[in-house]
């Protein structure tokens, strides 16, 4: 879908605040969280959950680090193993979207486009994902996972192609936290 390609191809960096609301398969509200995210194509993102708990997820182009201060735990995964077919892969990979996903246009209303993205491959890690673009920027991601849970991520204060400090995508482990290699 050229709207998606157009969006993905001409953003080098993205920065936004987000709220994420998770619903169980029966529609019950499970959790609301807020945070901030940076994306730099290819292969880098910084996903910070601020409330109700703090958790830092950094992709540095090679690996994905997950740091949970309260759990006092750092998990490291190889980038491709971690991203698999997650929304983060869609937004950060340079490969053509159609290699990993099928994209269908659900609706267009003046400058708002809603696209349905389904992962290809035998065991996809999620069912489908609806992406809402508004004047060529990302507004919302609604993800339906394989257990029927729905995650609604709404972005705000979106900045596109601003200069982003490289250190944001480098994870420096705080002293004394145990690091678990799970490559």
């Amino acid at each position: 879908d050229e709207a998606l390609d157009n969006f993905l191809q001409n953003f080098k960096t993205l920065h936004a605040q987000f709220t994420q609301t998770l619903y169980a398969e029966n529609g019950e509200l499970l959790q609301e969280s807020i945070g901030e995210m940076y994306i730099q194509r290819p292969g880098k993102f910084r996903w910070v959950y601020q409330k109700p708990y703090e958790q830092l997820i950094i992709a540095d182009g090679e690996r994905v680090w997950i740091y949970d201060a309260d759990l006092d735990q750092i998990t490291v995964k190889a980038l491709d193993k971690a991203l698999g077919q997650t929304p983060a892969l869609l937004l950060t990979s340079e490969t053509n979207v159609n290699d990993n996903f099928t994209v269908k246009r659900l609706s267009v209303t003046n400058d708002m486009i809603v696209l349905e993205v389904r992962p290809k491959g035998e065991n996809p890690q999620f069912e489908r994902l609806n992406l809402t673009l508004e004047n060529n920027t990302l507004k919302q991601i609604e993800l339906l996972d394989n257990l029927g849970q729905k995650s609604l991520i709404n972005f705000s204060k979106m900045q596109k192609n601003i200069a982003v400090d490289e250190d944001l995508f480098i994870f420096t482990p705080p002293a004394g936290t145990d690091i678990i290699q799970d490559m």
Binding site: L22, W47, I57, I66, D68, A88, D145, N146, Q149
Partner: peptide, 8 residues
Amino acid sequence: NTPTGQGA
């Protein structure tokens, strides 16, 4: 769920 919210 995974840290980014996907059902496991």
